[in-house]
Nucleic acid binder design. Structure first.
Lengths: 337, 337
DNA sequence: TTGTAAGCGTTATCAC
DNA sequence: GTGATAACGCTTACAA
């Protein structure tokens, strides 16, 4: 049975209040008292019960990071940075996986989930804009959106400029001299905003270069996993004329797409140049290495945590938008012939 | 301000006890009462406070999964399965990252970390056997070890037979006709038990085949990341005679090693055959695809969660050892010429 | 500077 | 079957 404040107080012959003062670092405690208390704490191996403290203070010291799939490299790399950033602010991170389950997302946001042991949510959503809009209005749970962009200032969010990022990626392929530029990653339901924005950037870059937008060259991807990229690329390669470049909305899609190109007996970048988004470590070792749009996840993580902490401390603070920098990293998958 | 049991009781004109009964699904409640209570709950949008409940019951409904690095694919894929398995048992998962920090591991295990908001720990350790032995003895926190094997029945653990797995992997390379078989992944401090066991399996397979164990062919890896595999492989390739096969203690090491082989102007598997351990998804898409020892992570996750739940329910239950099956999956990186 | 006591929102032990 | 009421372990007015 773990020792309590009361036990320590009894042993040290002081009041429970004094023990609490010592434990929580209150200043005005005489040295003799502090000495006695610390000794008793040592002796009993006392540790404060965080749950009791939480019940009293209303703070758990935990953040929830909600992602669709933790084993998607982008999310696990983001999680790593978020855990690190949260530690700097004295918070710990609980990771929740929604598994593309909108219902689960709604539960978390509305608090329909009855086990909310955290102070705030970092949310990398799957939900549509409309869904999200009236979701969190019921709960007062502090919320910061990751990766999304277009929410009219209702929520804190930290994201990249998706339109520009997609535009830059497409532009890079154009500068290579490619003209039949396909894209993988549009979502069947067009209400997901990230894919929508990337499509917008892709199309605008094509138009600016005077290249007609060819609907057949745009393939959806139900999720953003390797298998989805593989399937989509296979379909693209069977077209006539076949694309000479593919812009993938995520690096993982790109990994699958590259494999599909090889399996078709073609080569990257000679036959098909490929670019992704995310800059996951895998792309720095793959063959060929993957050209990508790098996202500065540490930046995203840091600002997201900073925002949520600010909102926890003051729920009334105005919502803020943070745009993380991005940058095209040219590697072998788009190297010039 | 969220509604409490008391508010509901007042509105429904019943006692707080009756409300609690309804909420926690107690059977002996009259229909009229239940009706009234449910109505009030609905009206107030009442949700039980999990912290208060926890303080009373001592259960948080949370498990901690402790891993060195969440962005290492093996761990993120394991995390995914653990989260899924935990959900089946009604638990949620908090992921903690120790970042190769022994001190952090000790903190978590001894509860020196003051925020123990979970009921049990699933621990994929970095610590040495000796360290672990007297670590958890102070706390009574339920603990299940993942991936480790040789702890004399003091702790629950679910793992694979590391010696056999390494033996099988090495044997596979031998059966290919390779004779200069290197290994990457031994740890500088030999007290880590998993690497130790893999080295044991590697060496025994060589000896059985009458192949001398060549110390130069064994390279340590500080961590198990791509960069470590890359560096180790580079060193191996500069040897004379150079190895014609490499057994990597993890798939990620293998990905780095493959890249090093290509950068040296050699090919896999013709010049150097490569096999890993873990069966991460990346290896199913890489070029060449990676031969590996598959670990059945869902099995590991399920049994680990089942054990920890059993131990939470009855702390006195005898420690158990679960050995997960493993299997060599032959792919292109060791295909016959 | 330190002690006393009132909660935080539950669950559980009594009675009735 | 339902109603009071005492914990759970802590923080924090309010007193002394």
């Amino acid at each position: 049975m773990p020792a309590t404040l009361r036990d320590v107080a009894d042993l040290a012959q002081v009041s429970i209040r004094t023990v609490s003062n010592v434990v929580s670092g209150y200043e005005h405690v005489s040295d003799r008292m502090r000495e006695r208390v610390l000794h008793a704490i040592e002796q009993l191996d006392y540790r404060p019960n965080p749950v009791a403290r939480t019940l009293r203070t209303g703070r758990t010291g935990m953040l929830a990071l909600v992602v669709p799939e933790i084993d998607v490299p982008y999310f696990s790399e983001l999680a790593r940075d978020v855990i690190t950033a949260a530690a700097d602010f004295g918070y710990r991170v609980m990771i929740d996986q929604t598994g593309h389950d909108h219902e689960r997302e709604r539960e978390l946001l509305t608090g329909g989930d009855r086990t909310m042991l955290f102070d705030g949510i970092l949310f990398s959503p799957l939900v549509t804009k409309a869904e999200l809009l009236d979701m969190n209005s019921r709960t007062s749970m502090p919320l910061v959106l990751l990766g999304e962009h277009d929410f009219d200032g209702r929520y804190d969010h930290v994201a990249i400029d998706n339109v520009r990022a997609a535009h830059d990626a497409t532009r890079h392929l154009i500068d290579l001299g490619r003209t039949r530029i396909a894209a993988i990653g549009a979502q069947p339901q067009e209400s997901y905003s990230t894919p929508q924005q990337r499509t917008e950037g892709y199309e605008s870059a094509l138009r600016e270069a005077g290249i007609p937008v060819e609907p057949d060259y745009q393939r959806p991807a139900p999720h953003y996993r390797r298998a989805d990229g593989y399937d989509a690329a296979r379909a693209l390669l069977s077209l006539d004329p076949r694309p000479d470049a593919i812009f993938c909305y995520s690096d993982l899609l790109a990994m699958g797409a590259m494999r599909a190109v090889f399996d078709a007996g073609l080569s990257v970048p000679e036959d098909v140049a490929i670019i992704g988004i995310d800059d996951i470590e895998e792309g720095r070792y793959s063959r060929p290495t993957l050209t990508t749009v790098s996202l500065d996840t540490p930046f995203i993580a840091h600002h997201a945590v900073a925002r949520i902490v600010a909102r926890i401390d003051d729920p009334e603070v105005a919502a803020e938008e943070v745009i993380a920098p991005h940058q095209v990293l040219v590697r072998e998958s788009t190297a010039r012939g």
